[in-house]
Design a protein around this nucleic acid. Sequence first.
DNA 1: CGAAGGATCGTCT
DNA 2: GACGATCCTTCGT
Length: 213
Amino acid sequence: MKVVEKEFYENDTDFVAKELIGKKLTRILEYENITYKLGGIIVETEAYGHDDDSASHAYIGISNRNKIMFEKTGCAYIYLIYGKHYCFNVTARNEKKKAGAVLIRALYPEKGIDIMSKLRNTTELENLTSGPSKLSQALCINKDINGMDLTQNNTIWIEYGIKPDAIGCTSRIGISRAKEVPWRFVMLDKNQQNYLLNPYVSKRKDIIKIIED
DNA sequence: CGAAGGATCGTCT
DNA sequence: GACGATCCTTCGT
């Protein structure tokens, strides 16, 4: 296991979002006095920029909520959405930008499935971590880890994983501005280059292009 | 299985 | 005072 280093997050935010596909998000959790390792493979991400991106929280400038997006790269940016859900982001940007983050939208569940099932109140694998707030609930992610450095030895980190056969690129989900910006990325299977058949990602968009190696 | 609507509260105007 | 980088339930086919 190798934790993704800080330098990785010092690239263009959309590049980082694409390259995070196939890496693994891992979370250490104390549950009923036992320490568990939870997590899975990142299969869906979205990039959010600064003043170049009207859909981004950072578009309006620095505020109490979004200030993590302007601070160190490789850190967790957590926010509450719709009054009850949390979303998990990693701060990432090149040295010329002042803010940026990648929203982790879905995981392929691998570790601690029994605990994640309890936290999610479902045993359906396809419903455990197939959404930004679903995975936050499954990994017990909330404001407590806002700003946490994901490149240090903490209770949550991102590590190197697998190389995807292909990656699909689409516009982002659930936004009202900058609807056409193609900054959503999903893992594709070589045999079924149609992400609609990937049960772990949001099924709401058409692929704009397919990125192969 | 898809569409529609409610939940719920921090954040910004 | 309005809205949101969402999820879940209900209702109809």
